[in-house]
């Protein structure tokens, strides 16, 4: 993604105006590149048409992996490799295995999910964010529209953004 594109950047001051604005802009037939906010805005996924995040499924699968690994490790060590009677317990003391199995399930589910989240959201310590406006980490919401990907004229999009409640409309090349 070395080539730069031209973006029209609409600045919104309020989350409720933003939500209405997104609806209006999309109804006007304009494709939105992305919306940026300083905090999570409820209901924004629906108006943008985003699907629910599947990360909970990822967490479940990693959790399952954790359970399997924990049981394999414990049974492998205590029952298969070196069976011993400890405190009169069985060679396969299932109740004794519950705590470690639980902990490893939680550990793998959390780390697997968070790792996946960081990768799919392209978050990394050396990451350089593409910021359309520095105020999005303060108090402004930004709607970015890629001019190259829209067939509508620039002036029409500008007008649509203004009508939808944007307090400023700028052109930015990134």
């Amino acid at each position: 993604m070395s080539d730069k594109s031209n973006y029209i950047v609409g600045v919104f001051d309020d989350e409720d105006i933003l939500l209405k604005g997104i609806k209006q802009v999309r109804e006007g037939g304009v494709k939105i590149h992305e919306v940026y906010s300083p905090f999570p805005v409820h209901g924004i996924d629906d108006v943008l048409g985003y699907k629910r995040s599947n990360l909970s499924v990822v967490a479940f699968l990693f959790g399952l992996l954790g359970t399997t690994l924990a049981l394999t490790m414990q049974i492998g060590m205590m029952t298969v490799d070196w069976p011993m009677i400890i405190g009169g317990k069985d060679y396969l003391p299932v109740p004794s295995f519950i705590p470690v199995t639980f902990e490893l399930t939680v550990l793998l589910a959390s780390f697997g999910m968070v790792g996946t989240f960081l990768i799919i959201s392209n978050l990394k310590p050396w990451g350089k964010p593409k910021l359309f406006d520095k105020r999005i980490t303060d108090d402004k919401h930004i709607m970015a529209i890629d001019l190259g990907k829209n067939k509508i004229e620039e002036s029409a999009i500008n007008k649509l953004l203004k009508d939808s409640g944007a307090s400023e409309v700028n052109l930015k090349t990134l």
Binding site: E34, V35, Y36, S37, P38, F39, P40, V41, I44, D45, L48, Y50, R52, S53, L55, S56, A59, G63, V106, A109, S110, M113, V114, F117, L118, I120, S121, N122, L123, K124, P125, W126, G127, K128, P129, K130, L131, I136, T137
Partner: peptide, 25 residues
């Protein structure tokens, strides 16, 4: 800050992560 840009898509994943982590924690 890991290159955070506040995109709506990222926030959407982020909120799921927070909720599932809370459920696990």
């Amino acid at each position: 800050s890991f290159g955070w840009d506040g995109a709506a898509k990222t926030w959407s994943h982020y909120e799921t992560v927070a909720l599932v982590l809370a459920g696990l924690a």
